[in-house]
Computed example of a mutant assay.
Amino acid sequence: MPVTVLIVDDSKLARIVAGKALAELQPDWQKIEAGSGAQALELLGKERIEVALIDFNMTEQDGLELAGEIRALRPDMPIAIITANIQDEIIAQARAIGAAFIAKPVTSEGLAGFLTGAALKLRSSQE
């Protein structure tokens, strides 16, 4: 069964770029896009989503807040925070909630390690 990845970013262009990188690495995986944290949480309630890629800088709430809410709902979900704002404090906060950190712009090279780890985690949880 294909894995479904939620891409959350208030920039449509950034969602397209992340989706392209995802498709290069995992062509069988499906993507669902959300333009806000509220939309992401709504989709999580309706759809079967296994992985989340979340932008850090969004207008309504930042990606770390959203990741924390998702972590409370889905403790084992692989989550990555995506941002061009590369600061040690943000990286440390992402790691504290069990999220990976991926620098923007998202490339297949930048996403590869996270997706490999996510695939392994999902496979081992299904066994």
Rank of each mutant, 00 (worst) to 15 (best):
A38N: 14
A38E: 15
A38P: 06
A40G: 01
L41W: 10
L41R: 12
E42C: 07
E42W: 09
E42N: 13
E42M: 14
E42F: 07
E42V: 07
E42S: 15
L43Q: 15
L43P: 08
L44E: 13
L44Y: 08
G45W: 04
G45L: 08
K46A: 14
E47A: 15
E47V: 05
E47G: 00
I49H: 04
A52V: 05
A52L: 11
A52C: 15
A52Y: 13
A52D: 14
A52H: 13
L53W: 05
D55C: 09
F56H: 06
F56Q: 00
F56Y: 15
N57H: 13
M58V: 01
M58L: 03
M58T: 01
T59I: 10
E60V: 08
Q61W: 10
Q61C: 14
Q61L: 15
D62A: 09
G63Y: 11
G63W: 05
L64T: 03
L64D: 05
E65P: 00
L66R: 11
G68F: 02
E69G: 00
I70R: 07
I70T: 05
A72I: 00
A72H: 02
L73N: 11
L73I: 11
R74F: 15
P75T: 07
D76C: 11
D76I: 06
M77H: 11
P78E: 03
P78H: 05
A80I: 04
A80G: 10
A80W: 04
I81W: 02
I82R: 13
T83G: 12
T83D: 10
A84V: 00
A84K: 00
A84T: 06
A84N: 04
A84L: 01
I86K: 02
I86S: 06
I86F: 01
Q87W: 06
Q87G: 04
D88I: 11
E89N: 09
E89K: 08
I90G: 09
I91T: 09
Q93P: 03
Q93K: 14
Q93T: 08
A94Q: 07
R95Q: 13
R95W: 10
A96R: 15
I97W: 08
I97M: 13
I97N: 12
I97V: 14
I97E: 14
I97S: 10
G98R: 04
G98A: 08
G98D: 06
G98S: 10
G98T: 04
A99M: 02
F101E: 12
F101Q: 11
F101N: 13
F101R: 10
I102D: 02
I102N: 02
I102E: 00
A103L: 03
K104A: 12
P105D: 04
P105A: 03
P105R: 04
T107Q: 06
T107C: 03
S108K: 13
S108Y: 03
G110I: 01
G110N: 00
G110C: 00
L111Y: 01
L111V: 00
A112K: 15
A112L: 08
A112Q: 14
A112W: 08
G113V: 09
L115M: 03
L115W: 07
L115A: 02
T116G: 14
T116M: 09
